[in-house]
Nucleic acid binder design. Structure first.
Lengths: 217, 217
DNA sequence: AATATAAAAGTTGTATACAGTCTACAATTA
DNA sequence: TAATTGTAGACTGTATACAACTTTTATATT
């Protein structure tokens, strides 16, 4: 056997990735119930790896067990959203702060790349994800990376659950990204923190505005 | 085991709690490997609930899989510790901030109780856990509660892993707690945030000092 | 027709079986 | 002696079996 051939990750990991993706993309709707045996048939694996991946997704906050038994996709409320922003508005600036302090030159390049690729995006997809992701990575704090990635993931899923169309203010975002980037280049950690805070705040305001429009409709 | 009448929480939850406790108290040492079959024999349950609780503990950051397969108790480094404090030093003040804003009168009573019970503790155990826990709860932000509880849990476990004896500065801590509490009573959210930040900072300094002493020895 | 009750179907929780993989150590060869 | 191969035993990953619960549907009672 060739030693170069990468072995497939185990089934529980594949199932985990599959389900996570289904939830994130909205194929599995909030509130929808997951039936282990049905998944078992559809994916052609036994229930064992399915149950294990369900436990992981529970911990991710994407699934929740009903008191009676049985799991459903989490159904976010506006309050959840509010609470998540209360966190993001502190933690993302924190990640900028440490990114400015500790980024390696490779990491700086990663951030620059994602900044530039974000310039020419359509309003359909949120490539700014990459910019933010590159910044947390550059914070070089594994705990911060995990928490912020997690928050951003759920946040984007929640956002999709609450408002269907999701226009991003591309021009505005790009300007804000530039300011953050420059501060990180200059290793101006306080500036990086401040600009990121403003950026998240304006994202929050945009979101709230969209929610209000939706209510009116 | 015996399929007699068992109404109580399911086995995976019991196993999860048991293992978590074992890890937190240090019965299971950092780096130690967990053998599913051995646990299965010891606890007299099958491997199924054991595997599921292992997946949960992995997500908690208490266990990690080795590339070869098999899980071990996480072995924290000083860098981990540093990184966790970088987070706590932001998030605990944040929880104080929202506690001051949103605490119910019942929650305020809970905080008062834990403040007073913390007054007469020995230096052996950290009852101040309760004070901090009561405060996050009063933030009424479920996401913040989860993250801070998680951080505090791991932090205390890590602390135990690095320095054996763990003297707390009871008097000093009580004074700081009082200031935080008063700010929460007064709904002075900025004050609550500031005092909590000072408190965590002084905790951090104490910890670093202990580490240095240990190195010298 | 409404309500209570029992039988059936659907689902989860747990145990067990088994195959493939890894580890350790003894036997073999250079 | 050192390196290599073989092999038994130890573990894990996955599948399957089955009992206990739930929910639904059907039946009986009033």
């Amino acid at each position: 056997m060739s030693p170069t051939v990468k072995k497939n990750p185990n089934l529980k990991t594949q199932v985990y990735n599959y389900l996570k993706n289904q939830i994130m993309t909205g194929e599995l709707r909030p509130g929808e119930r997951l039936i282990e045996e049905k998944l078992s048939n559809d994916l052609e694996v036994s229930r064992s790896p399915i149950r294990e991946s369900i436990r992981m997704l529970e911990k991710d906050g994407l699934l929740k067990v009903k008191k009676t038994g049985g799991v459903t996709v989490v159904k976010p409320t506006m309050e959840d959203f509010q609470h998540m922003y209360e966190l993001r508005i502190e933690m993302e600036p924190l990640s900028s702060f440490y990114a400015a302090k500790r980024r390696s030159s490779e990491q700086l390049e990663m951030i620059r790349d994602s900044l530039l690729s974000g310039k020419q995006i359509t309003s359909k997809e949120d490539k700014s994800l990459n910019f933010h992701e590159a910044i947390v990575q550059a914070s070089n704090n594994q705990w911060l990376i995990n928490m912020v990635s997690h928050l951003r993931g759920i946040n984007s899923f929640y956002r999709k659950s609450i408002i269907e169309e999701n226009p991003f203010h591309v021009e505005q975002a790009y300007i804000e990204h530039q300011k953050i980037f420059q501060a990180i280049v200059d290793q101006d950690s306080d500036g990086a923190r401040k600009f990121m805070k403003q950026h998240i705040e304006s994202d929050y305001n945009l979101f709230m505005e969209l929610c209000r429009k939706k209510e009116v409709k």
